[in-house]
Structures are given as structure tokens and as C-alpha cells.
Amino acid sequence: MQVFTDLAEVPDDFGPSVVTIGNFDGVHRGHQAVLGRLVRLARADSRAAVAVTFDPHPALVHRPESAPELITGLADRLELLARTGLDAVLVVRYSLEFAEQSPEEFVTRYLTGALGARSVVVGHDVRFGRANAGTLATMVDLGGRHGFEVVAVDDVGECAPQDDGAGDRWSSSAARALIAEGDVAQAADVLGRPHRVRGVVVHGDARGRELGFPTANLGGIDGMVPADGVYAGWLRRPGLADREPDHPDVVLPAAISIGTNPTFDGVERRVEAYVLDRTDLDLYGEEVVLEMVQHLRPTVRFDGIDALVTQMTDDVVRARAALLS
């Protein structure tokens, strides 16, 4: 998948294409359904399948004090978008200046001018251009004047019904609420994959190593950190995967701890992962991805080291059962 971060990077002869626009935070199952349809439309007409997305999220520019926490950072968003079969993504640097474009200026500069759009796939509630003045009707009118068809898609679907028969929309807000509660298993149902965070392994207090459970502490975390607690999950090493995709240490089972280490009167919230049964790994300075599979327990304060080690040993047993059984 090609990634363009500026209009100048788009080849002059790019297109014809089928284009959609959106933030795609989390690239959840609803996004995947819409993007899958776009890719099928593009393949049927031998056109490029393209998504236009924004960085930073528009809410962070217009209302930073109340903007939602993002599920995925840009690196993971692009990786997940690539999995849908897209040929290209244009990442638009969102700013107040960009937001002042009229709906027609946005369409003619980005969609038809740069990307050669012949079809534009949007939701019925699409809004674009200055003050969100552009609507589906606006897009259809612009399509008639600038030579592209508009494909309007229905809402992105429903999650699996609950016991009472009710469903919840596949949406970023639904996934975000579940992650905030630590319900990563249900969040995975919305996302279509385990929730992930990304960061660089940094030096911590070395307490885990002293206790027999050396952990990889993450710094510069990208992605929404779930509620405090202990989780079963996977530690992925994208750099190693690029160099040696078949290496057995590319994906490793882990017990992941999120919290302030209350047993040691900690105040700084940390994310750290113990790779099961491994004390030989040197991950310092390496970027890793943690995928949360199952919440094992909340964070609690223990009355001494022995009680903590006993609990950590049980955490490892439960994580192993959740991941490898």
C-alpha cells in the first residue's frame, strides 16, 4: 500500500480511483466492511482503491479539551488500513487552515485533482468542508459537476446481539468505551482484532527482574491504554519481523501490567510486559506492539513481596492458559 503524506507526493498520473474519506480510528469492523466494499468496487473497474484520512484527528484541532482519546496511533492505523486491501492512503495534515476550504475546494483539490476519483464512497451522514457544510447531497451535486459517481453506504452495522437481543453499533466510540473499562475481549469483537498499543522499551526500576519476572517497560506510548490491571496478550516485534519474518521471537506470549505499582507506592502509570518464561531477551530501545487479549485481574496493593510474587506466578499461569491452551 502506498502512503502519501502530502499532495506533492501523489504522482501526476495517479488514478483513476475509488476514494473514501474518514478518520478510521481503530479501523474497526465497520470501517473494514466499508473499505472492503470500496476495494471490491475498485477491483471491478480496474481502479485504485484509496482512503483519505486525517492527522491529527479533527477533534484535537477544533476542541482539544474534549477530544476523545484515540484508539490507534497513525502507524497502527496505516498498518491496519493496509490489511483491508487498499492500494493507497493519503494522510492529510489537518489544521484550521485546511478546515477553511469550501466543500468544492476540498473535492477538486484532493479527490478529483490529486487522486483522479471516479467514484467516492461515503456514509449517509458525511460532512466535509468549511463548518462541515458539505453533506451527502453536496457530494452528489459535486459529483455531477466534476465527473464522479457517489456511492452512499449504510451505517456500519451492529455488534453481536447481547443477551437481551440488543446490539451496539460497530463504532470507534463503542470500542473506546470498552477499552476504558478494560474489557479488551469485547473490544476485540468491535475491532475485529485484539486492541494494541505501541511504544519503545525503556529502562524501568528493574523490580520485575529482581522478582524473577523481567518486564519490558514502554515509553512514548501510541494508542489508547486500557484500564489499570493485568492482561494476557502478545508482544510483537515489528522491527524483527521486517528483518527476519520467520524468526520465532517475532510474536511472544506475555502477561501485561498496567498501573502505578501500588505495592511499591508508585505514582507513575506504566505499561509493562513480561514475556512468559523468558529472561534472556534484551529489548531496550526496540519498538514493540502489545496486543491485549484478556483481562485477568484488577491492579491491587499487596502486603509484601511474597504475596506479590505468589500473585504474579498465578498471573503467568492464567496468561499461559488464555494464550496457549
Rank of each mutant, 00 (worst) to 15 (best):
Q2N: 15
D6G: 14
L7C: 08
D13G: 00
D13W: 14
P16A: 07
I21P: 01
D25I: 04
D25R: 01
V27M: 04
Q32D: 02
L35M: 11
R37L: 14
R37V: 00
R37I: 04
R37M: 06
V39Q: 05
A44R: 13
D45R: 13
A49N: 11
H57N: 01
H57M: 05
P58W: 11
P58M: 11
H62Q: 05
P64L: 13
T72V: 12
R77H: 11
R77D: 08
E79C: 13
D87C: 04
V89E: 06
V91E: 10
V92H: 04
S102E: 05
E104R: 02
V107H: 02
T108E: 12
Y110I: 15
L111D: 14
L115P: 02
R118C: 03
F128W: 13
F128E: 06
G129Q: 03
A131Q: 15
N132G: 15
T135F: 03
T138M: 06
D141F: 00
L142N: 01
R145Q: 04
R145E: 01
R145S: 07
G147D: 12
G147F: 07
F148H: 08
V153H: 07
D155Y: 10
A160Q: 07
P161N: 08
A166G: 15
W170Y: 15
S172K: 04
S173E: 11
A174R: 09
R176N: 00
L178E: 00
I179W: 03
I179Y: 11
A180I: 06
G182I: 12
V184P: 06
A188S: 13
D189N: 05
D189W: 00
R193N: 13
P194Y: 09
V197Y: 05
V201Q: 05
G204Y: 08
D205M: 01
R209M: 08
L218P: 11
L218T: 03
G219A: 02
G223K: 09
M224Y: 06
P226M: 14
A227V: 05
G233L: 12
G233P: 00
L235G: 07
R237D: 13
R237L: 07
P238I: 05
L240N: 10
D242V: 15
D242W: 08
D249P: 00
I258H: 09
G259C: 08
N261W: 03
P262F: 08
T263K: 10
V271I: 14
E272F: 07
T279Y: 00
D280R: 08
D280S: 10
L283I: 10
E287Y: 00
E287K: 03
V288T: 06
V289E: 14
V289N: 09
M292T: 03
H295S: 09
P298M: 00
A307N: 10
V309L: 06
D314I: 12
D314H: 09
A319K: 01
R320A: 12
L324M: 14
L324R: 04
S325Y: 09
